[in-house]
C-alpha cells in the first residue's frame, strides 16, 4: 500500500541513484527505472487502486508532483553530465585537426581520357554526336575512299602499319592511321544533316621521340548539310579552341593540304610562351598548331551518294595527346603511354 512515506523513500532513492549516474547511458537507465512505463513511480501509482478516493487523490497528487520533480532533476543532471562530457573532450580527448583522416582510395582517369572527355563535351555542346569505328581497317576506308589511292605521294603523310594478310596480291588491312575512315562509314549509312565526332586510337609507322608516338588518340569531326561554309568551320573551331584553351586565346587559320578536303586548313592558337611574338617553342611563328581541317572534298560527298552541288560539309581532326600536352604543359608525348604512376597521379 502506497503512502507518503513510500513517496519520500522513493524520492530519496531516486535522487541518490541520479547522483550516481555519470553518463548518458546511466541516466537513460535511471529514467527508464524510475519514470518509464514499467518504472518504480508507475508501480507505486498502480498500488493506489486499493485506497479510498480521498487518499488516492492526495497520494496521486504527491506522486505527480514527485514525477515533475524527478523529471526536472533528471533534466538538470543530464545537462550537467553533457557539460562535463564536453569539458572532458576539451581537456583530454580533443582531436588534432591537423592530423589526416584514415585514407580513402582515390582513382584517377588517364589524362588522355580526361582530355578526350573535355573535347567530346565541348563538341557535343555544338550538336556533334559520337560515332565510333574499328581500329583495324581496310585500306579502302583508311585511304582510297579519302582520295588517297595506291601510290599517291600523300600516303607519305600517314606511314602505315600493315596487317600481315594478303588478298589478290595486296595487303588490304591496316592499323588505321586516323579516325577519318569512319567519316566514310557514317556517310554510307546516313543522310544529311550529319554532325559527328569520331574519337579513337590510331597507329603510325613512326619512330617515337618527344613529340611523336606510334600509337595516338584522335578526334575527327564531320558536319554535312545544306549551307555549311568555311565560315562555319572557322566559327566552330574558334569556339572549340577557346573552350579548350581559354576565352582569351587568339585563334588563327592557315592553308594546309589534306587530300580529303578542299580548301584545307590548319587551326592554330597563339603561342603559350611568347603570346605571338615568336620563340623557339613555336618555331618563331607565334602560333601553335592544334588541328587540321577543311571543307569536305566534293568527290567524297559524291561518292557517299550526296549531291555535292546541294550539300557542303567540313571535317577536322586533332591529336588528343597534342591537346593534352598543350593544356597540361607536358613536354614529352612518351609520358602518356609509359604509365608511370608518378606521372598519372598528377592529373
Amino acid at each position: 500500500m502506497a503512502s507518503d512515506t513510500d513517496i519520500q523513500q522513493l524520492e530519496a532513492a531516486a535522487l541518490k541513484d541520479l547522483d550516481a549516474a555519470s553518463d548518458i547511458a546511466a541516466l537513460e537507465e535511471w529514467r527508464v527505472g524510475y519514470l518509464g512505463r514499467k518504472g518504480r513511480l508507475t508501480g507505486l501509482l498502480r498500488g493506489l487502486s486499493s485506497l479510498s478516493i480521498e487518499e488516492r487523490r492526495t497520494v496521486g497528487r504527491a506522486a505527480n508532483e514527485l514525477k515533475e520533480r524527478l523529471e526536472e532533476a533528471h533534466e538538470a543532471r543530464r545537462h550537467a553530465v553533457e557539460e562535463a562530457r564536453v569539458e572532458q573532450v576539451i581537456v583530454g580527448e580533443r582531436r588534432d585537426v591537423t592530423l589526416p583522416g584514415p585514407p580513402l582510395p582515390r582513382g584517377r582517369l588517364h589524362p588522355i581520357t580526361q582530355t578526350m572527355r573535355d573535347i567530346v563535351a565541348s563538341l557535343s555542346g555544338m550538336g556533334f554526336q559520337v560515332a565510333e569505328g574499328p581500329e583495324i581497317e581496310w585500306d579502302r576506308y583508311n585511304f582510297e575512299a579519302l582520295r588517297i589511292p595506291q601510290d599517291h605521294p600523300a600516303r607519305d603523310m600517314w606511314d602505315t602499319l600493315w596487317i600481315d594478310y594478303e588478298k589478290d596480291g595486296r595487303r588490304p588491312m591496316l592499323m588505321r592511321t586516323h579516325t577519318s575512315p569512319n567519316q566514310i562509314r557514317v556517310m554510307e549509312q546516313r543522310e544529311p544533316p550529319i554532325r559527328i565526332i569520331v574519337p579513337g586510337k590510331c597507329y603510325r609507322f613512326e619512330a617515337t621521340d618527344a613529340t611523336h608516338e606510334w600509337m595516338l588518340t584522335q578526334v575527327e569531326g564531320l558536319a554535312v548539310d545544306e549551307g555549311i561554309s568555311l565560315a562555319d568551320l572557322k566559327g566552330t573551331l574558334a569556339e572549340f579552341a577557346r573552350q579548350m584553351f581559354g576565352r582569351d586565346r587568339k585563334v588563327g587559320f592557315r592553308c594546309d593540304y589534306f587530300p580529303f578536303v578542299e580548301p584545307g586548313m590548319e587551326c592554330r592558337i597563339d603561342c603559350f610562351i611568347c603570346r605571338g611574338d615568336g620563340c623557339r617553342t613555336c618555331h618563331h611563328s607565334g602560333w601553335i598548331e592544334i588541328l587540321g581541317a577543311g571543307m569536305v572534298h566534293p568527290e567524297i560527298l559524291a561518292n557517299a551518294g550526296y549531291d555535292p552541288e546541294r550539300y557542303t560539309g567540313f571535317a577536322f581532326g586533332m591529336g588528343v595527346e597534342r591537346i593534352a600536352m598543350l593544356r597540361y604543359g607536358v613536354d614529352d608525348i612518351r609520358h602518356f603511354y609509359s604509365n608511370d604512376l608518378r606521372f598519372l597521379r598528377q592529373f
Partner: peptide, 8 residues
C-alpha cells in the same frame, strides 16, 4: 559564323 540548321 556558327553552325545553324537542324541538329541531327
Amino acid at each position: 559564323s556558327q553552325l545553324r540548321g537542324e541538329i541531327p
